[in-house]
Structures are given as C-alpha cells and as structure tokens.
Amino acid sequence: MNYYLLEDNLIQQDRIQSILKSCHIFDQPAALLAALQADTAPKIILLDLEIRTVANAGLNVAKMIRQFDILSPIIIVTTHSEMAAMSYQYQIGALDFIDKTQNEQQFKQRLTSAIAVAEQRIQTQDVAQAEMISLPNGQKSEQIMLNDIRYVTCNDSKSHLITVYCTHKSVQVRSTVKLLPTLHEDLIQIHAAYVINKRHLVSVDTAARTVQLTDQMRVPYSRKYFKMIRDLVS
C-alpha cells in the first residue's frame, strides 16, 4: 500500500508523516500527478485543499486524478471546515474529510480510522472490474460503474424513464430498456421491462419465473429468454 500526500505546509507535512510513516509527500500538484500515474500499486491519496501557488487546487487535482484513477480512495485534509463534505463526496468520491484544526489526539484518531476504512475498501475491490460505462440520459450521459449495476427496469411503457439499480444506489435517467444491452455484452435482456447484469446472476426460479441476483434481489423474466438464462446459470 502506498500513501501520497499533497500538502505545502512543512509543519502539517511533519504532522501527517508522524502518523503515516511511509507517506510520499508532495507540495506541488504536477509532481503528485506524475508520481500517481507512474505508480500502479494500490494507493491512498491525502489532499490539502489549499495549495498557495494554485487556486482551487484540491478539487482540481482530485478531478484530474479521477480521470486516470477512479478507484483509489481520496481523503481530504483541510482547514476549510465550511466546505461541504457532501460536495466533495459527490464530485470526486472523497472518502473522508478531516479537519486540521482539531487537536492532535482527535486528528490522529480521525486520520487513522479514515486510512483503515480506505485500506479495507482497496482490499474488497477488484481493479479488473472497475469498468465504467456511459449510460445515455436523453441528450447527455451518466458515468456508472458496470460492476455496480444489478438490474435495470423502466418506470412505465410511455415515460421513457429507466431506473438502474446498483449495489448501494439507484439512478434514474431518460433512456430505454432496449438500449442497454447494446452498451455492454454483460447487460442482457430477460424481460420486456428488465435488463440484468449477468455478472450478478445467481439462480433461476422456474416456479415463480424470477431470477435471483446477488444481494437477494429478484427480477422477473419472460419465457422467451428462459433458455438463454438457463445456459448462463449452468
């Protein structure tokens, strides 16, 4: 596990290094980005939001990191407590938001627990499955991780709205069920109104005419697709 820190204040650098011994420290965004791109090992990134030479550094650097690395946990370390943590979680998937102005003990505790959560997350995720697909939304599109998708269904036949059910979230966009299988070969249609991600297919219940997906989700299938589903399960 490699740790990276972007921080231009010497005292704060020391402070964090005293907690995280093996931390690679950078005080300029460009150097950090280059180092991150060169490193293929799993990594945890700590960012300060304020770098004196660059305006809005933290957020912009995080966005740049996300362009080539969507998985590595990012932890924000800052004095900007008024900034909404929610905003960073949404925009760059920041894992945690740690306030530098806390006293030493609290700070250490928060940082170590955040690191622990990040390490755990890295262990549970499989880099090979981090494939993003672009989900059409009317004229626009939404990025979504393919492996997250459990199944997709439409609201009603006329509305042209579909809802994508993922592990921990659901997303509603303007699109059609029919269009989804064209996005990726793992998305397969099993019913006029349902498309599932075949990676999550567990079993078929012929009596209730449903398929079971991971996390106990059940989705109906229609007879037309039964053979194909049976072949997939066996």
Partner: peptide, 25 residues
C-alpha cells in the same frame, strides 16, 4: 425535461441521500 433538449435530469439515491442532478447546455 422532456420538452427541452438542452437540459437533462438524473435522479439518484445513494446511502440515504437523494440526489437530483440537472445537466444544462
């Protein structure tokens, strides 16, 4: 949203947060 081509809405629910995202052109 249906009547206007230059705006889209995506609705998300994630861990007890309800997110409405309007994309404008």
């Amino acid at each position: 949203i249906k009547q206007h081509e230059n705006i889209e809405l995506a609705t998300m629910i994630e861990k007890n947060h309800f997110i409405q995202k309007l994309t404008l052109e």
